[in-house]
Amino acid sequence: MEMSCACKGIRTCPVCEAAGKQPKLFVKDTEVRTFDYCDRCMKAWERGSSVHPNHMGPGLAFPGIFIQPNFVSKAEEAAFVDKIDKTAFVESQSGRRKQDFGPKVNFKKRKVRSACFSGLPDFSKPIYERMKKLEVLSDFIPVEQCHLEYTPERGSSIDPHFDDFWLWGERLVTVNLLSDTILYFICDEHPGIEVHVPMARRSLIVVYGEARTKWKHAIHRSDISDRRLAITLRELSSEFSDGGARSEEGQALLDIALTFRGYAVQ
């Protein structure tokens, strides 16, 4: 089957690159130094400085990452993938495909439309209930769920970016299915440095704090070696939460989300 492309702006994939579009490389002019994150130390260590607990050098403080290995079982993973694959994907940028379960949002005009929003999918309810047993997510209430498919054939990747701060809250949660990969981070305060955070198959990762607000996150094309499905859940920002200027609107969205009767928004 011939692959098509949904890339816009500077984003590219092998399909549009083969048609002549110049790829945009997110690499600093200086040589990149790679730091590997250690979830036991909650610090990042320059590659080659041995393994925990025998790290060498001062390390780099990197607060705002929580990893729960084996968050789902092999049987649950297979069931979730089966559910996801029964829903049509929409082509996205940078060689990805996606499914969205959330309100329609115009971030530029700061408008949210809930008319087509029917809630999160039914299979995510046990994921949500299990998440709330983790201390870091005990008060986390998801309002949006997104499924992203990455494949090496499509050269799937995602450019360094911040998730929106106006609508989405501090914690970004991802359940990583089907294959391992690396989530990498860059920051203007640390030029020439990439922090690589491992995302093991069937693990859950939470990005919050400085890792969310100071560091852009991304995935290199070269770190996708097999098909990967990411289930990402987001919470509302303070503007849409209790006491916020748009709290009533936010509560209405949550009421829809937690019905767990949703279908993907096309």
Results as ranks from 00 to 15, higher is better:
residue 162 F to P: 00
residue 173 V to H: 02
residue 186 I to P: 05
residue 168 W to D: 03
residue 172 L to K: 02
residue 170 E to Q: 10
residue 191 P to K: 06
residue 153 E to W: 09
residue 165 F to K: 10
residue 168 W to S: 00
residue 159 D to T: 12
residue 151 T to K: 08
residue 190 H to Q: 11
residue 164 D to Q: 04
residue 164 D to E: 07
residue 168 W to C: 03
residue 156 S to W: 03
residue 167 L to P: 02
residue 171 R to L: 00
residue 173 V to Q: 03
residue 168 W to H: 07
residue 179 S to A: 15
residue 152 P to I: 08
residue 155 G to W: 02
residue 174 T to D: 09
residue 183 L to A: 06
residue 184 Y to L: 11
residue 186 I to F: 05
residue 169 G to Y: 03
residue 174 T to M: 12
residue 163 D to R: 04
residue 166 W to H: 11
residue 150 Y to M: 10
residue 182 I to A: 07
residue 169 G to R: 07
residue 158 I to P: 01
residue 155 G to V: 01
residue 152 P to W: 10
residue 191 P to E: 08
residue 149 E to T: 08
residue 166 W to E: 04
residue 172 L to F: 09
residue 175 V to P: 04
residue 158 I to M: 13
residue 186 I to K: 14
residue 176 N to M: 06
residue 170 E to T: 06
residue 156 S to C: 08
residue 168 W to P: 00
residue 161 H to E: 04
residue 171 R to P: 00
residue 151 T to P: 03
residue 186 I to N: 12
residue 190 H to R: 12
residue 153 E to K: 15
residue 171 R to C: 00
residue 186 I to C: 14
residue 189 E to D: 15
residue 150 Y to N: 09
residue 164 D to W: 00
residue 166 W to M: 01
residue 160 P to T: 03
residue 167 L to G: 03
residue 183 L to G: 03
residue 160 P to V: 02
residue 182 I to F: 07
residue 165 F to H: 12
residue 149 E to N: 12
residue 180 D to R: 08
residue 154 R to P: 04
residue 182 I to D: 09
residue 166 W to Q: 01
residue 170 E to H: 05
residue 170 E to I: 03
residue 160 P to S: 02
residue 148 L to I: 15
residue 183 L to W: 06
residue 184 Y to T: 07
residue 145 Q to M: 15
residue 180 D to N: 14
residue 156 S to P: 06
residue 168 W to E: 02
residue 163 D to T: 05
residue 146 C to T: 15
residue 178 L to G: 08
residue 189 E to T: 13
residue 185 F to D: 01
residue 171 R to K: 14
residue 169 G to T: 06
residue 176 N to K: 10
residue 166 W to T: 01
residue 175 V to C: 11
residue 185 F to K: 02
residue 157 S to G: 11
residue 179 S to M: 08
residue 177 L to M: 11
